[in-house]
Design a binder for these strands. Structure first.
Lengths: 150, 150
DNA sequence: CGCACTTAGTTCCTTGAGGGAACCCTTAAT
DNA sequence: ATTAAGGGTTCCCTCAAGGAACTAAGTGCG
């Protein structure tokens, strides 16, 4: 747990932070995305403390981002993404885009994405759900919504 | 500073985390986006400790996400988004979308975005930069890139 | 001039989360 | 009966977060 409860704030950024804002959480979701699903595998891949890994996994399961699923005959468990968790990957993919652009340096991006639909190496482009044109922060007015505070 | 240096990892998610992964950083960027640019305004709006605010602002300036800009005659400063910082807002907007969908509850989203191009209330939709079709995590193959480790 | 006010930090102290290592428990194979 | 693997717990130490008080530079006012 972080000191501050971001999840309580009337802001979707803060609330999202309440789910994956703690250190390691985003990387755990990434690992599970690419098929690293078991406790020991995660611990080895990330080099995270087992204590913290336990806390993060429990929190992500509580938040309904991950699902703890038994496998095999013995009491063994794997973690899988829920629908909610799968949609969270859109956020991670936009982080990948930004990191690829601004933080890769000479070496170039660590991974590439090939889009099934067109077969091209590509990246995510944020577009308007209504008209399909590019939609960046400068392209919108921010208005109070129904769930606004006071 | 976090205990672990995420910025050193060969992963754009981890590297992005190295820039905005510390508690409060994303909300500071959000505030500056909506026009809250001065130290005391930020401190009052967020309810963050002044010490931590100083640390976060310095870090974001070092990472070239924010720019410290004097205003008026006296030694007073405002923080502004750089180009790098502005592009980071794409990540925040995708967090908004996910938070709006999954964490808003009955009340509905706290804020709405009106797209300049079409005038509609809309949200960001991740699309392929190559073909323009929807591009989510399930729609891609992940391949090693030129900057991959070993 | 002297004082208060504003803005932007800095310093100090306490608490609690992160990291690491060692330990525990269940089931199965030898 | 012993060992190994998987999946955690427990314990301790350190260091960052939070909060409150203090500093410092420049301005306006009486």
């Amino acid at each position: 747990m972080q000191r501050t409860q971001f999840g309580e704030m009337a802001c979707s950024i803060a609330r999202t932070w309440g789910v994956i804002g703690e250190p390691w959480s985003a990387l755990i979701v990434r690992d599970i995305w690419v098929g690293i699903r078991r406790f020991d595998q995660l611990q080895a891949d990330l080099g995270i403390s087992r204590k913290v890994l336990t806390e993060r996994l429990n929190h992500l399961v509580e938040c309904d981002v991950l699902e703890r699923r038994p496998y095999g005959a013995r009491p063994r468990f794997e973690y899988h993404l829920t629908q909610k968790g799968t949609e969270l990957l859109d956020v991670l993919m936009s982080m990948v885009r930004w990191g690829d652009h601004w933080l890769s340096g000479e070496a170039g991006p660590p991974v590439l994405y090939r889009h099934h639909a067109c077969g091209q190496i590509a990246e995510v482009d944020p577009r308007c759900s209504s008209c399909g044109e590019p939609m960046h922060a400068d392209d919108v007015d921010v208005l109070p919504g129904p769930g606004a505070a006071r």
